[in-house]
Simulated scan of single mutants.
Amino acid sequence: MHVRRSLLSLAAVGALALSAGCAGDDLAEDDEPSTSASAQAGGEVTIGTQNFDEAVLVAAMYEQVLDDAGYDVTVKEVGRRDIYVNQMPDQVDVAPEYVGGIADFMNTTVNGAEAEPITTSDTTETVEAVTPLLEDKGLVLLEPSPATSQNAYFVTQEFADSEGVTALSDLEGRSVVLAAAEDCPGRPDCEAGLVDTYGIDVTEVLPLGFASPQTFKAVLDGEADLGQTGTLDGTLDDQGLVLLEDDESIQPAQNLVPLISQEFLEQHPDVEERLDELMAALDNETLGDLIARVTVDREQADDVAEEWLQEQGLVS
Rank of each mutant, 00 (worst) to 15 (best):
I291T: 09
V271S: 01
T295R: 02
G288L: 04
E277G: 12
L282P: 02
D276K: 12
P269I: 11
L282W: 08
R274F: 10
R293Q: 13
E285G: 10
L290F: 02
E285Y: 09
E266Y: 11
R298A: 14
A281V: 15
P269L: 07
D270I: 00
R274V: 09
R298F: 13
M279R: 12
R298M: 14
N284Y: 01
Q267A: 14
L287Q: 10
L287S: 02
E285F: 01
V294S: 03
E273Q: 12
V294N: 07
G288T: 08
A280H: 03
E266K: 13
P269N: 02
D270M: 03
M279Y: 11
L290R: 06
E272C: 03
E285H: 07
M279L: 11
H268K: 11
L282V: 07
A292C: 05
N284E: 04
A281T: 04
Q267I: 03
P269H: 05
E266L: 15
A280G: 03
L278N: 07
V296M: 08
P269S: 00
T286K: 01
E272T: 03
G288D: 01
R274N: 13
V296N: 07
D283A: 09
E277C: 02
E285S: 12
A292L: 03
M279Q: 13
I291D: 06
E266R: 07
L275Q: 03
V271Y: 05
V271T: 10
M279W: 06
N284T: 08
L290N: 08
V296W: 05
R293K: 13
M279K: 09
A292M: 05
R293I: 08
A280E: 14
D283L: 11
V271A: 07
T295Q: 13
P269Y: 09
E277I: 06
D283Y: 01
G288N: 03
L282F: 03
H268P: 05
V294L: 01
I291G: 07
A280S: 10
A281S: 14
H268I: 13
N284K: 07
L275W: 01
L278C: 14
A292P: 06
R274L: 07
D270W: 02
R274S: 13
D289V: 04
V296Q: 04
Q267E: 15
L275G: 06
V296A: 03
D270A: 13
T295D: 08
L287V: 11
Q267M: 12
R274Y: 09
E273W: 00
E277H: 09
E277Y: 09
A281K: 00
G288M: 02
A292K: 00
P269V: 12
E285A: 12
T286P: 04
V296R: 10
L287A: 05
V296K: 06
A281H: 11
E266N: 14
R298N: 15
D276T: 12
A281F: 15
M279I: 12
T286Y: 05
D276S: 13
L282D: 11
D283W: 10
V294Q: 00
L275C: 09
T295G: 08
H268C: 08
T295L: 05
A292N: 07
N284R: 02
L278S: 04
E272S: 09
L278E: 01
L278T: 14
D270H: 08
L275D: 10
A292T: 11
D270G: 14
